[in-house]
Design a protein around this nucleic acid. Structure first.
Lengths: 137, 137
DNA sequence: CTATTAATTTATAATCAATATAAATTAAAT
DNA sequence: ATTTAATTTATATTGATTATAAATTAATAG
């Protein structure tokens, strides 16, 4: 709790119970959750929680760079804790999102074109290893 | 017209007037349009066109690999004609999507992890050159 | 410690892109 | 020319997100 409270205060965000719990959830679960997943998971521990608060909090956290919104083609937005820069593999079969730890090699090139790059989103879309293997069982 | 008709027939898609016009629009306009943009542009020439048809057609075309859906954080989906593989720069200020002609260097690495890669989406998000220059005028 | 003020949370309603449905139209094939 | 199947269209519905306003909570001053 204290850890997350400090992180929020450092960014100038009022550390409410709900915000602490949502930030904690995202830091501990690297499952790229949707609003609904976060809400369902925290509802047990924070029974008064409302979905609007999850939306609001994710907005605040991402505005301050603590979390990122992923660029997926899913109808629901997926979020992740901003622990380091990496790419994603999105499986068309099981819909899992898998972290791919490669750096972006073109950021500087794009900056040299005159654009200011603030975020890099790299997605590989296809069929993940597990689903490929299941096809041949 | 004939060119687009042939492309559709080759893919086994029935070449209706609406589909030909939508494919033609996408091949000629590299503005990464939304459904609404396509509908508004074609409405003049195809007055009976309905938005549902634009949705359906884009679904058919992307299923057959003629067009791609972009991974943006926008509420509306953006489409593009599949002329070659490239990345995108998305401007937070003017919301333009700019083609960035760089290849993806990690596709093979991801394949080696055991995942089957079918699409690669690379997005740089930030402030484009034009908007950066306008800030200092 | 209490009261005041401002911010946050919550419940509810509204929005809007996308999809589902079914009737009307068109195209393909005999 | 007729039948059949596919496509288009109009309409209704869905569902994620946002807007609004009331209730609650947190921060601050007295």
């Amino acid at each position: 709790m204290e850890k997350y409270k400090r992180m929020l205060v450092e960014k100038g965000i009022k550390p409410t119970f709900q915000r602490i719990k949502i930030l904690e959830y995202l830091e501990k679960h690297h499952n790229h959750p949707t609003v609904d997943m976060i809400y369902s998971a925290l509802y047990k521990k924070v029974p008064t929680l409302s979905k609007t608060t999850v939306y609001n909090t994710l907005g605040v956290l991402s505005k301050h760079g603590l979390v990122s919104v992923l660029s997926t083609l899913d109808s629901e937005a997926h979020y992740e804790y901003n622990f380091n820069s990496h790419h994603h593999f999105i499986c068309k079969v099981c819909h899992r999102i898998i972290d791919i730890d490669v750096p972006c090699t073109f950021r500087q090139y794009v900056e040299e074109l005159g654009h200011k790059v603030e975020e890099v989103h790299g997605n590989f879309v296809g069929i993940c290893k597990d689903c490929m293997e299941k096809q041949y069982e």
